[in-house]
């Protein structure tokens, strides 16, 4: 059976004056219908760039230098921009951390929603309004008939983000990519938005890629998780397996660094050093300078992402296999 989304050996570069910098260095992953995948990793690991590359929306100096992105078997990164635009916002929607990246401050919610629908479907204005109201109800906007006439600034942060989710749903997309959708929100509201996304994946058979640096959120919401480090996937597998039995030294360090299960007031387990910037990615395994179990081979050869045992748990490490 073919996957909803298949990313194969994706490579993204930024063309800068002094040369090309590789931001994504061979990322492969798959997502099935209705499946929820989390991408975690520290700032600069390449989570957002991966998301943008999938919807073919990399900003200026960035470009896909190798690899393929297939949605429902169709190769997206070779499509002319006009065809891609039809897929974007139709088959794939993206939700950003800042709702104002999606919302236009000078238009009412109704106008924005109807414009989106009319751009992608052949329906009347009245039908479009009905669709819009239906989606606002799906995301639990109270008194949506009234709300729909308001401007974004008249809504609270949590409500704005729910409206953005409603807009993302307008065209019944097969895949939603949510990039830190709740980072700016209170945890009580974050929990609501996460419930909502989970609910929609189940009822609409929608695929979800949830990008976040919050391991807690990912472990609540997703079925699989990919841990990125310096533009590569370090570990990918079923969420509960990766969280409870992490194999890659970086994932282990990340989970051990959380205050979670430690005696309050005791020292936290820190990973020494920091993630390299794109200009000074070390040779071999990019994690080796911070790794406590690294070997000589780690400094020379890039470890491949290899399956463990029989299940779809993969890690890229020379020492742990």
């Amino acid at each position: 059976m073919s996957h909803l989304l298949e990313v194969k050996d994706l490579e993204v570069k930024f063309a800068l004056r002094f040369g090309d910098l590789t931001a994504i260095n061979g990322v492969s992953l798959t997502l099935d219908k209705g499946e929820r995948l989390g991408i975690v990793g520290e700032s600069g690991a390449g989570k957002s760039v991966t998301g943008f590359a999938i919807i073919n929306l990399l900003s200026k100096p960035g470009y896909i230098s190798a690899g393929r992105v297939l949605l429902e078997g169709q190769e997206l990164n070779r499509l002319p921009e006009e065809d891609m635009r039809k897929i974007r916002g139709n088959r794939i929607s993206m939700i950003f951390q800042d709702p104002m990246m999606t919302l236009n401050p000078v238009l009412t919610i109704k106008t924005q929603m109807i414009e989106t629908i009319l751009a992608h479907a052949n329906v009347s204005k009245t039908e479009a309004t009905d669709i819009a109201l239906d989606k606002l109800k799906k995301v639990h906007i109270p008194s949506s008939e009234k709300r729909i006439h308001q401007y974004p600034h008249e809504c609270s942060g949590g409500m704005r983000q729910r409206i953005v989710v409603a807009i993302a749903l307008l065209t019944n997309p097969a895949l939603i990519i949510a990039d830190e959708p709740t980072t700016a929100l209170d945890v009580t509201i974050q929990a609501e938005i996460m419930d909502l996304l989970q609910e929609l994946c189940a009822s609409e058979k929608m695929g979800l890629i949830l990008i976040t640096h919050d391991l807690g959120v990912v472990s609540q919401v997703t079925e699989r998780i990919a841990v990125m480090y310096a533009g590569k996937i370090a570990e990918i597998g079923p969420t509960q397996v990766v969280i409870h039995d992490p194999q890659h030294p970086y994932t282990q360090g990340l989970i051990k660094a959380l205050p979670g299960s430690l005696q309050p007031g005791s020292r936290l387990n820190q990973i020494p050093g920091m993630m390299p910037t794109l200009t000074d990615i070390p040779p071999g395994c990019a994690f080796h300078p911070r790794c406590t179990i690294s070997d000589t081979i780690c400094r020379m050869e890039v470890p491949a992402l290899i399956s463990r045992h029989d299940h779809d748990h993969m890690i890229a490490c020379h020492v742990v296999k």
Binding site: Q190, S219, Q220, H244
Partner: peptide, 16 residues
């Protein structure tokens, strides 16, 4: 409400 909504690592909370 606040404490019930904290996402906890590896423990699927039934409800918040």
């Amino acid at each position: 409400a606040l404490l019930s909504a904290i996402p906890e690592l590896g423990r699927q909370k039934p409800t918040h």
